[in-house]
Each structure stands twice: as C-alpha cells, then as structure tokens.
Design a protein around this nucleic acid. Structure first.
Lengths: 343, 343
DNA sequence: CCAAAACCTGGGAGCGCTCCCAGAACGTTC
DNA sequence: GAACGTTCTGGGAGCGCTCCCAGGTTTTGG
C-alpha cells in the first residue's frame, strides 16, 4: 500500500490480527468476531480463522484490546496492609488459591497489588484508571478506607473478610460468629466449666466476630465470659495470652483460641506450665491450618474454607462484572468443627 | 478540529493526557516527557504539569502506554505446577513477598499466572505476546520445559530454584548443598554416629541438592550414607519416612530432614516410638519455617531466606530488562544454621 | 557578532485492536 | 419479481499513549 521508505521497525514480536485475517482470507473484523465468539460469522469463515490462528500461533495483544475495547479482562487482588507480612499468611495463600481456581478457564488475568505505605493514592489512581475491571480486596485490619474509596469510584469491588469500616461494600466472609459459638458449645458439652478465650486484635472483624460467637455460646450455657485475653495472630502472642489467662484463672479447664496459629503458642505455654491437653485444659482452635493436625496434641479446631472464600469472592465479582443484578450484598461461608485430640 | 456530528461516546472514565496538557498549557509531548522523567523539560513546564496532574487526578492509561511504547511495565510470576497446591506453600508465599518488596517503588506491576493442565501453550502464547516484559518462573518439579521455552522465545526469564531441565536459563536458588552439608557436619560435631536423612522427591533439584550436601558432610567424616528415606514435602511423608528409617536402623541417633514440614511428621513418629529428641535422636530440619520454632521441641534447622530469593530473582530480571550485561547466569543464596533444641 | 551546540517544544504518525456503519448475499413473503 | 428481513462481511475511525522529527530558543565559543 504505502510506498514510503521502509521505516526501521525493529520489533515485530508477534503475529498481528491482520496477518491472521490475510492467512484466513477474511477481514480483520471477521477475525475479531471469531476471537470474541460473536454471532454472525459463517462456519466456513470461523474454521478458516481458527486454522490460521493455530498455524500462526497468534495471541491477541491484550493492551490493544483493552485500549480499543472498554474492559481489561483483568482483575486486581489488592492486599491492603503494610504488606509483606500478610503474604506469609496461610489465609492469604488460601484466598489466592481460590481466586485462581475460580478464574481458571476464564480469560481473565490476575494482578496482585499491595498498598504500600502512603502510596494509597497511587493505588487508587491506578485501579480507577480503567486498568482493571474489578477489584478483590483483602483488608485484614481495621477501618481501612480503601474498599469504600474504590466502590465510590464506581469500580466493582468485593472485600474478603468483613470490613469494619466499609459499610455497603459487598463482602464475603467465613461465618466466624457461628463457628466460634459452635466451639464454645462443644466445650460446654464436654463438661468444661471454666472456659477462656484468646481473641484476635480488637481492630479486626475476624477477631471480634469470633469473640462474640464464643461469648454467645457461653452465655447461652450461663457460663462466665470474663476470661478473655487478646493476641495478634502470632504464636508468641498466643503463648503470652495463655500465660496471662493461667495467672488470672489457674483453674481454667478449656480455652477457645481464635486462631490455630495462636493456639500453637498456647499449647507451648500449657506444656511449660505442666498442664495436660486435653485432660487438664481442652483447647479448640480456629482455621484448621495444616499445622493444626501436626500439633502436639493434634488440635481440635473450627475449619474455615479459605479457598472457598477466594472462590466466592471471585464469583461474586465476576457475576457483577457480567451485569448480574440483585446479587447478595454479602455472603457468609459455613464453618465446620474438626475434632482431634486437644479437646 | 472535526466538524462531524457528535459521536455518542458513552464512556469517559478518566482524565486523558491531552486534558492535562491543556490544563498545564503545554503540549501532549511535554506532559509525556514529564511523566516519563525525561530530560529536556524546563522546570516551569515540569511544575505546571505536575500541578495539573495533581489537580485532575490523572493516571496514565497503562494499556495505551504498553501499546504505544514497547514495554508493558509488567512482569509475570509464573507458578509452573498443577497449581493450586503450590500456593499453599510457604516457599511460594516467601518468594512472592520478596518479589513484591523488590518491586516496591518501581512502576512495575506483577501478574500472577499458573500453568493449568495442558494449557501450557496458551500460557506461552500469552507471555510471549508482549504483554509482559519478563517472567519469573517458580518451577518446583522435574524437567519442566517452560523456562527453556520462554527463554528460547526471547523473553527474559529467571527461574527460582535450580531447574533440572532448563540448562542455560538464569536461576536463583538457595545454597541447598552447603546448607545440608553444614547440617550434617553439625550433627557429626555433636558426636552423632548413625545419621539418617529424609530427602525430598528425586525429581526436585532442591531435594537432590540437600541430599548431596548431607552425603558430602557425612562422607567427609567417614560415616555411612546409607540411611536415606524419601518424602514429598508433607508432614505425613516425613512421618512415614521416619518410621521406615527407625525400622531399618533402630540405633540411629540423628536425622537430617530436608524440609521442616517433613520434620514435623518425623518428630511425631519419634514421639510415638518413645524416642526423646534430642537425647535419643537429634533432628535438624531445613527452611526455618515459622512452625520450626513452635514445634515440640523447637527445631534446629537450616534457614533459607526465601524472601531474599524472591528479591534476588526480581533484581536479576529487572537488571536484565534494564539492559545490564554480563549478569551472573545463576546466583546462590547463603543459608544459615539456626540452633534450637532438637539437635 | 555569528556559528555551532545545547536545550526545549509541538505536531503527528502509528501501536493492534474493537466497534460502528454501510453494504452484500441470502432467504421469505406478498 | 419487488420489498423486506436476516445473516454475513469489510472498511475505517478511533482508544490514549509514545516516539520521531522538525523547528524554535537559548547558551556557548571562537
């Protein structure tokens, strides 16, 4: 077509749509239609295009599609946290696994982002810049304004774990309240009378919900709910909290620990104090991490299906992106008691 | 310019470069230069642009940049594996953390991908389609052809963990050999005579390297290296392997377990068999997972800095992308012995 | 004081795709 | 056979940016 002097186009990394069109003997438009699975393409053309694509090893340029179309075929998983610490969390890993599983087969990419110290504005700008179609937020701590901000900006957003501050933003969470209540009731049913709890931080919904469930379970049985200690989801904090409880109530005969990871520390402290588990003190954890079954003794715990959480978040987001209406504003996933030897 | 009838452009999600230019009273080119930190921009223009950007809340459209420029400002982290299982691995989490830490501040996004069953061709197409500038591959198992394929396609690639089959592709790994040798020597130095090992699977370099190191450590002390059992990096397999070893050599007085996660199982088995740790049998693990310190007894182990691995991989890739030459083809990260009570 | 070099600036051609529009080919009905 | 749908197809205008080029404005040096 052009008779200009040849431009020094160095890069020619890939087949372009046009080459496929030429190879298939159709127009760009038709190739585009085939790729996007649109109707109104003759089966002859469709086959020719598929053949050409296969032969040329064509893969559409995502950037161009995003630019020309209006969606990015890409969602972000945002970990709203000081960051690095969270990635070590099995919770995060499980969610990630679920997100990936749910995305399998869909032509949607996952971009992982973390809000770095103060860079929040950058993050929001980026996310709202049309680079992603929707956002999954894992916001473990406190009154994080991020979900609210994103939702207000009109970006479809789903939060994992009940957000404390973001009223109205759709979220998915495990049913921490009922799980914890079940744990408490179980301990009651085993004849325990002096039941303590080690709860998570007060600024995390997951900690508070489990604490509430425990309280409800005990108060239904007319038992005291005064034996509460707090940890921060580390084994060390669990150990310290256990020591504190033991000092306050040497006669306690059970403890519900709001996270397996803290239960590990609690077990250590009990061991050090010469308390036999479960004979002297029954221990129930929460989460059912892998380490729960390998703990000494193996930990009775409330299992939450974190992978399912990731899957459900993703499903919810994709459904919204697909334009489904009247979707549930929030979803609670059931938990299940796993009885091992610690209680 | 155009006097056409107004087109029904529904979407106008964001500020565009041109609006910034108008607001700042300069041309698109100048704005672009400011954004990309190019020289040859007067400070007056630069300030005006920054002001306009701030006022308008402008954030450049990534898709357009990628399309127009030649780089995507985006790298992929590929987990080459049947997938879901790996995400639960603390190794993966650590690497991810490191990658993120290294990327902080750089304007580079991270896309997470997994090679799903058979979809490998799709993956390769996508990655080679210019959608990412480079690839980080975590390939845990066997003779995975993926790194080779990517590298051959001219895509800058760095592998995490020594790949068995991908000769020539740059990789970063912990110094498993020397770490394991140190473990063996330590046991020898503590007077242990009958030292066994539980190794990882034969098709994983990490398992073999640690096994080799253990062998070398023992043979230097003229000790037998026949007490080898294999596991698959699960606590259960560690327990089974330990039982096997105990049957084969009831007199063994030490075991080097090629992964903390397997050591957990081994500890359980030893406990069941009435063996005291470390009095009867000394146990040394590898990895220094968080669970190592909370094990009963706390596990002496070889620490590998997985986060550093992720960081180093990323650094290596970014250096290559930046055009640095004569980069080291592979990098080995030192390990460190962590002495606790199990040995 | 003028030429060369160094700075700064704007214009405009794409990047590879989608999506709109106009029109061709093929029925179907009166 | 004219008039109308319905199915299919190609052309071409952008999407928002980068990067090249040409030209203007300063500084420098002889």
């Amino acid at each position: 077509m052009t008779d200009a002097v040849d431009p020094p186009k160095a890069r020619r990394p890939n087949t372009r749509l046009e080459e496929v069109a030429r190879a298939a003997g159709v127009s760009k438009s038709t190739v585009s239609r085939v790729i996007n699975g649109e109707p109104y393409v003759s089966s002859r053309a469709r086959e020719a295009v598929h053949l050409a694509i296969g032969k040329l090893g064509y893969s559409p340029n995502q950037a161009a599609r995003t630019l020309a179309g209006s969606r990015a075929n890409c969602i972000a998983l945002v970990v709203s946290e000081q960051g690095s610490r969270v990635l070590a969390d099995p919770f995060f890993a499980g969610v990630l696994r679920g997100v990936h599983a749910e995305l399998a087969g869909k032509r949607v990419q996952l971009v992982l982002m973390m809000s770095k110290e103060g860079d929040e504005q950058d993050l929001v700008n980026y996310l709202c810049g049309g680079h992603v179609d929707g956002v999954l937020v894992i916001s473990l701590h406190g009154q994080d304004p991020l979900p609210r901000t994103l939702a207000d900006a009109g970006l479809p957003t789903v939060v994992g774990g009940r957000p404390l501050g973001a009223g109205g933003v759709p979220y998915v969470d495990s049913d921490n309240f009922n799980g914890a209540m079940e744990a408490a009731r179980y301990l009651v049913s085993r004849g325990r009378k002096r039941i303590a709890t080690i709860a998570g931080p007060r600024d995390m919904a997951v900690g508070m919900d489990r604490l509430s469930g425990w309280k409800r379970g005990l108060s239904q049985a007319r038992l005291d709910t005064d034996l509460v200690a707090y940890g921060d989801f580390t084994p060390e904090s669990g150990a310290a909290a256990m020591a504190d409880l033991l000092k306050r109530a040497p006669d306690l005969d059970a403890v519900f620990v709001g996270a397996d990871i803290m239960a590990l520390g609690a077990l250590q402290t009990l061991h050090v104090h010469g308390k036999r588990v479960p004979d002297d003190v029954a221990v129930v954890g929460f989460d059912d991490l892998m380490i729960a079954s390998t703990a000494v003794p193996p930990l009775t715990t409330i299992r939450q299906d974190v992978e399912q959480l990731g899957r459900t978040m993703t499903w919810r987001l994709m459904a919204e992106l697909a334009g489904e209406e009247n979707l549930p504003p929030f979803l609670l996933l059931p938990t299940a008691m796993v009885t091992r030897s610690s209680a």
